[in-house]
Design a binder for these strands. Structure first.
Length: 274
DNA sequence: CGAGGTACCTGACAGC
DNA sequence: TGCTGTCAGGTACCTC
């Protein structure tokens, strides 16, 4: 479910809630979510450690633990990290529970069970899925328009597909890709190598704009995305094309269209995105 | 490298 | 009510 702004919102919430807390116990109710499905080893490695830091890289959440270990969590489509009182009954989809001191739990909910938790020792980040192969952070200060132009050059793939590739740019997902292309006035059917210099610049600015706005409004909530405190995001109210198919484009009043592009439902205005 | 397909899993919703 | 098909904020893996 979450893309960069949702993950960033969750990370900021967790930084307030769990840094300094000791993990006094771990309950694994569904070991599918453990990348290495060895739940005994997982519990032994994690239990007793103190949460030192919470960071984001792309859509990954990195929880630094005492003793130079890290928990790396990817929420995939339906993952949530929730803070709950330990006495609260388990939700059907609470699959991994980190019991913290102070009778609070950090619970990893995941309806579709696509999410994964990796344990990394030291800086062996290659143990955490594709974390070590991620492209640049789009909001980093050193991610300049020139860097974006350089990375996009010589790529012949469709622009929609390229923006979704995490090794090209980290953190974009289906919503923010559609919104960025709309704001840049670029059709999702375009190939990367057909973009003019001016269009690449517009796309760069649009990507940064939609991600920053997404973070400002605490992410996008459709059905059940919430931050660690159970609060919804507000960015869905700012969406211009995503899930607005059949409605009028705010700029030109043509009808927003939805096609399957790069295997994903893609929303765009066929008139002002060329 | 690129395109397109499948797979992983559960739930919501539309249509019959 | 219940069946079927489709879709979903993601990614890995496969073939051509």
């Amino acid at each position: 479910m979450p893309e960069l702004p949702e993950v960033e919102t969750i990370v900021r919430g967790l930084q307030q809630e769990v840094i300094g807390s000791r993990i006094v116990g771990v309950i694994v109710r569904e070991d599918m979510l453990l990348a290495n499905r060895d739940q005994k080893k997982f519990i032994e490695t994690i239990a007793g450690r103190v949460i030192k830091s919470v960071k984001r890289r792309g859509k990954y959440i990195i929880i630094g633990l005492s003793g130079n270990y890290s928990l790396v969590i990817h929420l995939r489509m339906t993952g949530k990290l929730l803070i709950k009182p330990s006495e609260a009954g388990f939700d059907k989809h609470s699959h991994v529970i980190f019991r913290l001191e102070g009778d609070r739990d950090l619970r990893f909910n995941n309806i579709r069970k696509f999410g994964r938790i990796y344990v990394v020792e030291g800086d062996n980040w290659q143990q955490a899925g594709s974390l070590s192969e991620l492209g640049p952070e789009p909001l980093a200060h050193d991610f300049t328009v020139d860097k974006f132009k350089e990375r996009i050059s010589r790529r012949t793939t469709g622009i929609k597909s390229l923006l979704l590739k995490q090794d090209f740019i980290a953190g974009m997902g289906n919503i923010y890709t559609d919104e960025a292309l709309y704001r840049a006035g670029i059709s999702p059917y375009r190939s990367a190598d057909s973009l003019t210099d001016k269009e690449i610049t517009a796309l760069y600015q649009a990507i940064r704009k939609v991600l920053k706005l997404g973070i400002k409004y605490n992410g996008t909530t459709f059905s059940d995305y919430v931050n660690s405190n159970g609060e919804s995001g507000e960015f869905q109210e700012k969406l211009q094309v995503y899930q607005h198919d059949g409605e009028d484009c705010a700029r030109c009043h043509h009808t927003i269209q939805k096609d399957k592009i790069a295997g994903r439902g893609s929303h765009f205005c066929p008139n002002c995105q060329r």
